[in-house]
Design a protein around this nucleic acid. Structure first.
Length: 330
RNA sequence: CCGCCCUUAGCUCAGCCUGGUAGAGCAGCCGACUGUAGAUCGGCUUGUCCCCCGUUCAAUUCGGGGAGGGCGGACCA
């Protein structure tokens, strides 16, 4: 796998391919980041961007994880004290999950976001951005049901973070794309380069296959789940034997979250997946890529129930180190 | 600061005029059927009726006050 392929694999969107190819041509010492609001518990959504960071480390990038405490505060996620505590725990979980401690730089937003130069730049960007645009960029991120002024400042700070942290590449889930596009528009207006971005897909809600998995609602797999909880959630998961389920009765698009978890979480971290299957159904199966697993489910050679059993096993292996780390912290 | 509207189950809301502590749909849970889930049947659960004060035998309902939210107090029509 070449550098470009590794940098972009499993990405839902690359902005722009040309810019990433330039980075891929000389990846050593390049800097990439993901910003996380320390809110709730680390779940598979976070781990998806974490997988991307691991890819980038393997490609030679320096990786920065921004623990966006100020952003969480602006987004109504609690007091600074509460946010700090969550952030510390989150950092430990990321390391346990597999980010290389030597190559990963953890930064708190509050370490630099109150600097005079930062704030002056922020005001300059505020002047260049309409309230409607800022608000629109937050549609997938916004917490609470009432739009606050702080939530309009939020995306502008995100743009400035990319400059302040001296980054070559911004990584985020697809819910971040509007914020990143805003950054690409506005930063050049105040004399900075438009940032290059990679967006990871959003995994659908486990129970319904609709929308995106989130910690605030619906069913998600978190780093705190026990084996039994993971098993219960996967057993209940929506899983028609196809990669492209029909929309539901109300016309909402549906995905297959079980296959998504295999694609974005299991196969990137395991070279081989063994599906244990009772003899009566034909015995064990082995796959070394997602494509063959998905194809066999669609053809009927792999029953969803057997796939789910394997998914539980591998997800549990992924979650286990973080769970251990969390337990030792308490 | 002024005006109008809203606040009832997890969600969207009905009920309030004509006081007697509450309903629907969806969601959720359980069971049947499928070697998963979903779909489909069958069954079930759920409430400080935003808060305080007042009137009353009795207030979710009437009156007063307060809090939170939306929209106006531009143009256009």
């Amino acid at each position: 796998m070449d550098a470009y392929e590794r940098i972009t694999r499993n990405a839902a969107e690359v902005v722009t391919e040309e810019e990433v190819r330039e980075l891929a041509a000389d990846p050593e010492g390049r800097r990439a980041y993901v910003g996380y609001e320390p809110s709730g518990v680390l779940h598979v959504g976070h781990m998806l961007t974490a997988n991307k960071l691991i890819d980038l480390q393997e490609a030679g990038f320096e990786v920065v994880v921004l623990l966006a405490d100020v952003h969480a505060y602006l987004n109504g996620k609690g007091t600074f004290e509460e946010i700090e505590a969550t952030a510390d725990r989150m950092q430990a979980q990321f390391l346990a999950y597999g980010l290389d401690e030597e190559q990963t730089e953890f930064v708190y937003g509050s370490e630099f976001q109150f600097d005079r130069d930062y704030v002056l730049d922020l005001h300059a960007i505020e002047l260049e951005t309409s309230l409607a645009r800022a608000e629109r960029s937050m549609s997938e991120i916004q917490g609470g049901d009432t739009v606050r002024v702080s939530q309009a400042v939020y995306p502008l700070m995100q743009a400035l973070d990319i400059v302040s942290l001296d980054l070559d590449l911004a990584v985020g889930g697809m819910e971040q794309r509007k914020v990143h596009m805003l950054a690409r528009d506005v930063l050049p207006k105040v004399g900075y380069d438009a940032p290059t971005c990679i967006h990871t897909p959003l995994i659908a809600d486990l129970a319904t296959g609709i929308g995106k998995m989130s910690s605030s609602e619906g069913v998600t797999i978190s780093m705190e789940d026990t084996t039994a909880e993971i098993e219960a959630k996967i057993t209940d998961a929506f899983c028609p034997p196809t990669r492209e389920p029909e929309p539901d009765d109300e016309g909402r698009e549906r995905e297959n979250p079980v296959l998504q978890l295999f694609e974005y979480h299991v196969f990137p971290r395991f070279a081989e997946v063994v599906v244990e299957r009772p003899e009566q159904y034909g015995g064990d199966l082995t796959y070394d890529d997602h494509e063959s697993l998905a194809a066999e489910m669609e053809s009927g050679d792999l029953h969803p129930a057997d796939a789910k059993g394997a998914l539980v096993t591998y997800l549990d292996r992924l979650v286990d180190p973080g769970r251990e780390r969390l337990a030792s912290l308490r």
